[in-house]
Each structure stands twice: as structure tokens, then as C-alpha cells.
């Protein structure tokens, strides 16, 4: 379960102070599917980074289960990200020089598994997203939808508790968008993940159990 208490995030941008999140208090129970919507620059990505242990709040606290993320050392945060949190990015963010299989294996590198175990788990993850036969393809040899599937396989291969998706369908056509959403929903349902996704797309947001709206750093529940 995520618990954010009075979280404020400010940073300096071109000689002016920007407040991306302002006194946000939020609770996200384990296993919930949450969509975060809002205008560009409203603080969606900052909130997602806070949940993903990529940023620390300027003030307030962020907890994931028993772990207090806002005061944790960098190395321990990296450990949390390595084990507990999976990320899916709008631009897929696959490493272009590595094959699909190797891209998925990068998520297992911090876990000190044997090469055989790593390869086996990566192969299963690719199979679970329907790309069992594309393991040897490099990202450039795959379609946008397939690349996003590889990114999802990379996110879930370590069996995380949380899957964070930043505009996961933003670069995809409608048909592919639906395929990806079905895949994410299936994983959320089957693996009991907490799925938090940021999206501009109302069709995507409507699939979530809970919708949050963020504007000028303030989070509100959307019915």
C-alpha cells in the first residue's frame, strides 16, 4: 500500500520556483488499478516518479508498505526499484543495442541470478506478453506495440508488487492501445499487482478502478 502524507515537490526552473506537487495526501491500497489524469505540467509525472522512488519529496512522506521512501538512501531506493516496482514508459525506453530477451534480462541484473535463471525468467516473461518468438529481435526490428510489450515484460519479469506506467499507450494506435491495455489489465488481475498509470486518454482511464485528477500540483478524486 502506498501512503503519501502532505507531499510537496518544488524545484527551480529558469530562476523561478515551480511547485509540481502541493500538499498531496493520498492512499493507494495494494492491488488497486489507478489512473492519473490531468493537463500537461500538472504534476502527473512528478507524482509517478515519487511513487516510483525516483524522486524524494521536498516535504512530506511517501511510504510503500513499511518502507519510508522519502528518507531512504539512494542504494536502498535502487533496491526497492529493483524488486518492488516495475516501470513502463511512453517511449518504451528499450536499449537499442540489446535484443528483446536481453532487454528483459536487464531488469534481473541487480538480482544476482544465474545466467540460466535470468534467461529462463526473461523468456517466460516474453511468452506471457505474446513475444516468445521475438526474443532475438532488437527493438528496431519490432513494431511500437511489440516494443511496448517487451517493456512490459521487462517490468513484470521481477514479479514486482507495483507496476507504474507513464502514458503506456501514448505512442500507439487505437487497436494496439487496446491490446496493450488488455495485457496490462490481465497482468493486474492475474498477478495481483498495484497498477498505477498516467494517461491523457480517457478511454484508458475509464478502465481503472479509481481515477485521480491532478492539476497545479493538487490531486483530486475523479468520479
Amino acid at each position: 500500500m502506498y501512503l503519501l502524507k502532505n507531499v510537496t515537490k518544488s524545484y527551480d526552473q529558469s530562476k523561478r520556483r515551480v511547485t509540481a506537487l502541493s500538499d498531496v495526501t493520498l492512499e493507494i491500497p495494494t492491488g488497486q488499478m489507478v489512473a492519473i489524469q490531468g493537463p500537461t505540467g500538472g504534476g502527473k509525472s512528478t507524482l509517478l516518479q515519487m511513487l516510483g522512488a525516483l524522486e524524494r519529496p521536498t516535504s512530506g512522506t511517501v511510504s510503500l508498505g513499511d518502507a519510508e521512501l522519502s528518507s531512504m538512501a539512494d542504494a536502498r531506493l535502487a533496491g526497492i526499484r529493483a524488486k518492488e516496482i516495475g516501470f513502463v514508459f511512453q517511449g518504451f525506453n528499450l536499449i537499442p543495442t540489446l535484443t528483446a530477451q536481453e532487454n528483459v534480462e536487464t531488469a534481473l541484473a541487480p538480482m544476482r541470478l544465474s545466467a540460466t535463471e535470468r534467461a529462463s525468467r526473461a523468456r517466460k516473461a516474453l511468452e506471457s506478453v505474446g513475444l516468445g518468438d521475438r526474443g532475438n529481435h532488437r527493438p528496431a526490428e519490432l513494431s511500437g506495440g511489440q516494443q511496448q510489450r517487451v517493456a512490459i515484460a521487462r517490468a513484470i519479469v521481477k514479479n514486482p508488487a507495483v507496476l507504474l506506467a507513464d502514458e503506456p499507450t501514448g505512442n500507439l494506435d487505437e487497436e494496439t492501445r487496446d491490446e496493450i491495455m488488455e495485457l496490462l489489465e490481465g497482468l493486474w488481475r492475474d498477478q495481483g499487482l498495484t497498477l498505477i498509470l498516467v494517461t491523457h486518454d480517457s478511454a484508458v482511464a475509464k478502465r481503472a478502478q479509481r481515477r485521480l485528477h491532478i492539476k497545479q500540483g493538487k490531486v483530486t478524486e475523479k468520479k
Partner: peptide, 16 residues
């Protein structure tokens, strides 16, 4: 930059 940012996001430490 994005590559390393991504690796850090998926749990790679600075040392790695």
C-alpha cells in the same frame, strides 16, 4: 542519458 535513466529506474545502482 535516457538509457541510464531507464536502467536506474529499473533498479540498477550507480556502481553497476
Amino acid at each position: 542519458t535516457r538509457e541510464f535513466g531507464t536502467l536506474k529506474a529499473i533498479g540498477w545502482t550507480n556502481g553497476r
